[in-house]
Design a protein around this nucleic acid. Structure first.
Lengths: 240, 240
DNA sequence: CTATCAGTAATTTCATGAAACACGAAATAT
DNA sequence: ATATTTCGTGTTTCATGAAATTACTGATAG
């Protein structure tokens, strides 16, 4: 049986573009030729632009007036900012989730971790990522806070362009997950929050090690509050 | 002199609608007649729909296919969720901001609090709200975390429909601000975070008192993770 | 060699007719 | 009466021509 595609065109385009971004089909700073996309997907300008606007609003693309639409470059500064915010939100999620954990969920968590171990042993980064995503999503759901779920979604969305640039040490992330599970099993909200925060702090360390230190611009101890840095580095990126 | 508005039409409409929502020009669940808006603002459907779509995406409006666009009802459950998330984010903002505080900023904070006191004494709720907003914005900026600023912006955005339904006891909020300032003056990040969190917890209490208790649906200790509650109450709202 | 300017081309937004869609009301059949 | 189908109506999305805006190009003058 053939299913008809019921979704609005603009949403389809949005999904296509988001997938392309997630798959790193555009390098940072690269130009997105909107007109070409309309041709490729066989739609008209209206729905395509609607999708592009949404991605711009979400901070994945950038529009330089009358020059074009560009893939936003995720600077190390912003990357760390994202993880700092995520740390707070995931800490909250973990804390809220602990009281709601039941045996069934704990089993599921254990199963996921077990599967993750296999992926790590097999060196399957992509497979691991998917399970990692599921593991986190499970905790978010368990928090029972729909709003938190949404906000975390948008934050993690913005991280997508990052994924390829930092290669985490999988075995260590796995240890974190085990600690998280242990905290849940002990019904210890403080410990769960700490474990989740720790998970993120490790990623921040990872970023700092992987990236050019003189690009950091000091997130935590940021001196001024000026706006001068917000766009300048992106501007450089739009080569070609 | 008549200023020509250089901004994109869709953005203007977006701002207009957002302002109308903030001013409670639409009651919760009320239908937004998109066609009428196009007439009122003298624009065509395209930019108006773009604005409406954005508001839908931001969770302020809701689209029931081919029935119309409706003002979303903020349930007490969601309201509390929002404050729980905000608590975590503002706590982070405060903590990050403390190390960046200098004399100039502290002066500014003191000045804002002083102005707030006048508003409280004069019973000017609107005036107070504006200063309250500035006070918070000052801390967000000071955190130096642009991403945090953005996320907090979207969260507070979603709270807008709430403002009128809970009438806070201004004098107590003012006390909180004073405690926050004291924490900053003492350069005590823990204390600042606690003060900010406390500020939000009070609001949550306020909501619980102001609203019908049997609508709460238990946010913190939410039992299941089911999705059954996510939309049902909204559906009811689309009367008429 | 630099600056200025006009013409050109590309991007982006907007207006509007038309199509698609979903619901309810009526009409028809069971 | 109940079920099914058709039709009308209002909503929503889409396609496309046109207009507005501005970057780029290259020529000319200083």
């Amino acid at each position: 049986m053939i299913k008809v595609n019921k979704q609005r065109l603009s949403l389809q385009v949005y999904d296509i573009l988001k997938k392309m971004i997630a798959d790193h089909r555009f390098s940072p700073g690269a130009r997105i030729n909107v007109e070409q996309i309309t041709k490729e997907v066989g739609a008209s300008r209206t729905p395509v632009w609607e999708a592009v606007h949404r991605l711009i609003q979400e901070g994945l693309l950038e529009n330089i007036p009358n020059r074009g639409v560009f893939m936003l470059t995720l600077t190390p500064k912003v990357a760390i900012e994202l993880y700092v915010v995520r740390e707070a939100l995931e800490g909250l999620a973990a804390r809220s989730a602990v009281p709601n954990a039941n045996e069934r969920v704990l089993k599921k968590m254990a199963k996921l971790i077990d599967d993750q171990r296999k992926m790590v042993e097999g060196g399957d980064l992509v497979g691991y990522s998917r399970l990692d995503y599921e593991f986190h999503a499970l905790v978010y759901e368990l928090s029972g806070n729909r709003t938190l779920l949404e906000v975390l979604g948008t934050v993690k969305n913005k991280m997508r362009p990052l994924a390829l640039h930092i290669t985490p040490i999988l075995s260590r992330l796995l240890e974190d997950h085990m600690e998280i599970l242990a905290a849940f099993q002990a019904r210890d909200a403080d410990r769960a929050e700490a474990a989740f925060r720790n998970h993120n702090l490790k990623m921040i360390e990872q970023i700092k090690q992987n990236m050019n230190p003189d690009e950091w611009e000091e997130v935590q101890v940021g001196h001024g509050v000026g706006k001068k840095n917000s766009n300048s580095d992106v501007g450089d990126a739009r080569s070609k």
